[in-house]
């Protein structure tokens, strides 16, 4: 008989499902169909291996992160699992803060102890007073130093504080979470990475992982900005495109001067790239008001929903 460890409790599991074993112990996990279709009872393996029979039909990025369906899982080996939204909290120290543009900073952090995060995922930054905001990871998977891109929102609660932190300051991170990650099982699928503003951060995380993995298909990165100053990684991305034959960098700047090749409308640029790239996986990151129409265009252009990874940032209203 296998033992399930769940939030500090140990539960013996026989032939019954993890969902039933938890229910027997008075632990309620949301559930509906109990047949593996609705995915309401999604939980996550924290230590041990999730039963693969309970991962059928889940998106590959969820499988990779150890998520499984409690209603379909019977245990043969011991397992530690947790609710899908119960994420670990890790202390982190600021290594340095770089100015990337007038209103964008790169914040580099080192966590105390191991921190397994994939490039492109996000963490919730937690301040000591309880204020919490999500930021995406621009670093590659397994990098000892985490890289966040923070746009300074005038009157914002978190971002000005974060941009002005000094090296050595500490904060806490909850997570990581999110599915905007490089698919290691698709080394020859073309990639379209498109985002505006600091939506570039998770795309950089994905791009770095793709290059580390020796990705064998074209990768096109479209960065949209209102002004040329908003292309805050312009030099680095040009250099990357020059170095890697697989990488194309396509900036789209609304207010660039007439005649500048970087001048262009983000939505139109992404549509053209998607049209020209057959069979691509498309990552879309940035504010929902900009990216939702692009997501819709992409789907209507024939890209299956399963090949669209959209990470839409919602900015909290200023106080």
């Amino acid at each position: 008989m296998a033992t399930l460890t769940w939030q500090g409790r140990t539960i013996a599991c026989g032939d019954e499902s993890v969902l039933d074993a938890l229910a027997r112990e008075g632990v309620t996990v949301p559930s509906s169909c109990r047949a593996g279709a609705c995915q309401s009872c999604l939980v996550r393996a924290v230590a041990g291996t999730a039963p693969s029979s309970a991962q059928k039909g889940l998106r590959a990025s969820l499988v990779e992160q150890g998520f499984f369906l409690a209603c379909q899982a019977t245990l043969t080996d011991d397992l530690t699992a947790a609710p899908a939204d119960d994420l670990p909290v890790t202390r982190a120290t600021v290594l340095r803060v770089e100015r990337a543009a007038d209103d964008v900073a790169r914040v580099f952090l080192r966590t105390d102890g191991a921190f397994e995060a994939r490039g492109g995922q996000f963490v919730h930054v937690m301040r000591d007073d309880g204020l919490t905001r999500p930021y995406s990871l621009a670093n590659r998977s397994g990098d000892g130093s985490l890289e966040l891109h923070v746009r300074r929102v005038a009157g914002g609660a978190m971002s000005p504080w974060l941009c002005d932190l000094a090296a050595g300051a500490t904060l806490h991170l909850r997570g990581p979470s999110g599915e905007c990650v490089y698919r290691r099982d698709r080394p020859t699928q073309p990639l379209v990475l498109a985002g505006t503003g600091t939506g570039l951060a998770p795309l950089l995380g994905v791009l770095r992982d793709a290059l580390d993995a020796g990705h064998g298909a074209p990768i096109t990165l479209v960065h949209g900005a209102r002004t040329l100053a908003g292309l805050y990684e312009d030099d680095a991305l040009r250099a990357m495109a020059a170095r890697h034959p697989m990488v194309r960098y396509e900036p789209a700047v609304l207010d660039a001067p007439e005649g500048d090749p970087r001048r262009g409308d983000f939505r139109a640029r992404v549509a053209a790239v998607v049209k020209a790239t057959k069979g691509a996986r498309v990552h879309l990151c940035g504010p929902p008001e900009t990216l939702r129409p692009v997501q819709r265009d992409t789907f209507l252009a024939g890209v299956p929903l399963g090949d669209i990874a959209a990470d839409l940032f919602v900015t909290a209203p200023s106080r």
Partner: peptide, 14 residues
């Protein structure tokens, strides 16, 4: 939509 189609196809649903 997946839940809806599962239902109208006679699949498992609540």
């Amino acid at each position: 939509q997946k839940a809806f189609l599962t239902m109208v196809f006679g699949g498992p649903n609540h």
